[in-house]
Nucleic acid binder design. Structure first.
Length: 490
DNA sequence: TGAAATGTTGGGGCG
DNA sequence: ACGCCCCAACATTTC
């Protein structure tokens, strides 16, 4: 009788598409079992939110990159599509798997799936291990003295930082053994069959020019940031006209790099090169905002659909006209900084953080359009669209969120432009029809004298729209509407 | 992780 | 020389 083949271990990849600091993969390899590394593209399980267009594009390339990396060390990535739970159970049964490993997720539907999978696989006698590869601290580990979760960022982050430092990241495994795909197992599909890439039309040109999805691209971004820019992070992070940020968000979103890798690399660079603590802390605090958003999502599962502060439930949102929505989406509001941001988003799959706040504030406060509608658009167009960050941030801007912007904090798109894009370089890049307008008018073309406009080759209303609302009046309208939320109407 | 309105101060022009 | 006014510039309050 031939010897029994060793029972394989399954590694279920999800939002952790990397090999370094990959606890699930590392733990699986340590069992000594041959490995089935899988990714499940799941559009069938109830409650799961389908990825948006930009995220789908990113995912395609990230999976390509992950598959190559696995092959390089003797492994293989198999892709399945369909409802996660039955696929997993069928695979585990067909493979006679001894164990399964995955990185935890924090959305409600994801947690429900993972919970049930854990129960059913355990019942089938399979070792199930879920690991934290996403966050510096688990949401249930950061609590106030009363045992409640934090609703304000600063105390949250203070408490998180008072906890033991996250463990140092794991090195990428250098070798693994792929298990043969079992005969009775669900059919794998080729990546192309998932149709993640746009075809008619192919709008991804700007994305290809901007990004290198995958672990190598993530590491390159981190290195460039720590070598060149972090020393001025605190002062330049708000400047969309300069490359002051890390450009890591979409890599983080797909788990091509982990929070603790970033944390430790930053600390290391700080001490190695004597970088200012102010800049390093500020950068790590942004990882802290991401932690906070995940923490909120975990404790408030309806973050996408419900106001975190219920007093916003009665807010008098306007019914958006198709035309004003498309003006905002297409970067035709007549406010240059808003339009530059929305066009950057459409072209590149990202938007500078400062400009996200300005553009979001414009939709919510100047147009009085429900934050959920803006969130949907960002979900579809951002490569870093994340169930935690995108929702928490939109609620923050709207004022309905945790540690929200106060109701009276309304961004003035002209002042914000002048302050953070002082020479208009960012506007000129994404709103080229304004390129010839001199600095003093670049953020308020409607105030430019006729001769100046003529010289710049602009006729307002023809070459570039007149402002779709008057900000000063829109502000008054927003304050009046927001006044209704001041008193709790519960 | 604002902005606008209102209040205060101080220097210069001017009678 | 002196007081008054004007108005930046800055500070404080309010939305």
């Amino acid at each position: 009788m031939p010897p029994m083949p060793p029972r394989p271990a399954i590694v279920w990849f999800r939002d952790d598409l990397r090999l370094s600091d990959q606890q699930a993969l590392t733990a699986a390899i340590e069992t000594g079992a041959p490995i089935l590394a899988i990714y499940i593209f799941d559009e069938k399980s109830p409650g799961l939110r389908a990825p948006g267009g930009a995220t789908r594009w990113w995912l395609h390339h990230s999976l390509t990159s992950l598959a190559r990396s696995l092959e390089r060390i003797g492994g293989r990535l198999d892709i399945l599509t369909g409802p996660s739970l039955p696929l997993l159970l069928d695979l585990a049964r067909a493979a006679d798997a001894q164990a399964i490993f995955w990185t935890r997720r924090y959305g409600a539907a994801e947690i429900a799936i993972d919970k049930q999978a854990k129960a059913e696989l355990s019942d089938a006698g399979i070792l199930v291990r879920s690991l934290n590869g996403q966050l510096l601290h688990e949401p249930w580990e950061v609590q106030s003295k009363l045992g409640d979760f934090y609703r304000v960022y600063s105390p949250f982050w203070r408490a998180a930082q008072a906890r033991p430092e996250p463990a140092p990241p794991l090195p990428a495994p250098s070798k693994m053994k792929a298990a043969v795909w079992p005969k009775q197992a669900p059919k794998t599909v080729a990546l192309d069959r998932l149709n993640l890439l746009p075809t008619k039309p192919d709008w991804a040109g700007g994305l290809r020019d901007t990004w290198q999805p995958g672990e190598a691209g993530a590491q390159a971004r981190l290195e460039a940031f720590l070598d060149n820019r972090i020393g001025q992070y605190a002062s330049l992070r708000d400047r969309p006209d300069q490359p002051g940020t890390s450009f890591l968000s979409a890599h983080i979103r797909h788990g091509e790099i982990s929070a603790r890798q970033i944390y430790h690399a930053t600390k290391h660079a700080q001490h190695q090169h004597g970088l200012p603590a102010r800049d390093c802390d500020k950068f790590i605090a942004e990882i802290g905002w991401r932690e906070f958003a995940h923490h909120l999502l975990y404790h408030f599962p309806d973050l996408r659909s419900r106001n975190f502060q219920s007093k916003f439930d009665a807010f008098p949102w306007r019914d958006p006209q198709a035309q004003e929505l498309s003006a905002w989406q297409g970067g035709q509001t007549g406010y240059p900084i808003v339009d530059a941001g929305m066009r950057e988003l459409w072209q590149t799959g990202t938007m500078h953080n400062r400009v996200r706040m300005i553009a979001a504030s414009f939709l919510v406060k100047d147009l009085l359009i429900d934050w959920r509608i803006g969130e949907e658009w960002f979900w579809d167009t951002l490569c870093d669209a994340c169930p935690a960050n995108n929702t928490a941030s939109w609620q923050w801007v709207a004022g309905s969120g945790a540690d929200a912007a106060p109701y009276f904090r309304i961004f003035n798109p002209v002042l914000q432009g002048q302050k953070f894009d002082p020479h208009g370089a960012y506007v000129r890049k994404y709103v080229p029809e304004l390129a010839k307008l001199p600095d003093p008018w670049i953020h308020q073309p409607w105030d430019a004298p006729e001769t100046v406009l003529k010289q710049a080759g602009i006729e307002l209303g023809r070459d570039y729209p007149k402002p779709m609302v008057d900000h000063s009046r829109a502000r008054d309208r927003a304050l009046a509407a927001l006044a209704t939320t001041k008193t709790d109407m519960a």
